[in-house]
């Protein structure tokens, strides 16, 4: 069991629904976010291309945030989800510095917070809030070890990339191009 997500950049319109759905589902305080949108524009008028990406924690297999955490608050659970135990976190911010994806933030209550792949929903057999809400259905989630999962099927017939491969983090977020 290894959870992963594929983001179809051909379909994403950058509407930010994933961001606000995550905020209301996970009570992320206004002014903060666990997922966000990146827009890349390349070329010059009229030969211009745009790539829109819904980004979040990459739940890296080789996760620098877990390695550098002095208290063990950052850890990996079954399914490869990188989690932070809030009351073990001292808010030192080492993990924030170590993350090549800038996926973590300091919660105003004093701990570091980030995407959990909506672990509390997965436990109940539900999908993540961002995947459930996405109007363009550009987010595919599931077990990478299961060839019939939504994410595996999405990856099968498409080309994809990961972000910052040079960091060697073995990220579990895949961007369909």
């Amino acid at each position: 069991m290894r959870y992963g997500m594929a983001i179809d950049t051909a379909k994403c319109v950058g509407c930010s629904d994933c961001v606000v759905a995550c905020q209301t589902e996970n009570n992320v305080p206004i002014g903060y976010c666990r997922d966000w949108i990146v827009e890349n524009v390349n070329g010059s008028y009229p030969n211009v291309e745009i790539e829109l990406r819904s980004e979040r924690c990459n739940h890296c297999e080789n996760s620098p945030c877990v390695r550098c955490c002095p208290t063990g608050a950052s850890h990996i659970i079954d399914g490869g989800i990188v989690m932070v135990t809030h009351n073990e976190c001292i808010g030192c911010g080492a993990c924030i510095q170590s993350c090549p994806y800038d996926a973590r933030y300091s919660h105003p209550d004093g701990y570091v917070d980030k995407c959990t792949f909506c672990h509390h929903r997965l436990e109940k057999g539900q999908n993540t809030a961002c995947v459930e809400v996405c109007p363009t259905r550009c987010l595919h989630f599931g077990d990478l070890d299961d060839p019939y999962s939504d994410v595996s099927k999405a990856l099968k017939n498409r080309t994809w990339k990961v972000l910052a491969p040079e960091a060697g983090t073995k990220p579990q977020l895949f961007f369909l191009t």
């Binding site: 002014g31 903060y32 976010c33 966000w36 933030y105 919660h107 105003p108």
Partner: peptide, 15 residues
């Protein structure tokens, strides 16, 4: 659009 840049700004300022 919510980008990570917004977040950094907020986090650096007050939070």
């Amino acid at each position: 659009m919510k980008t990570r840049r917004d977040f950094i700004k907020v986090s650096a300022a007050g939070a």
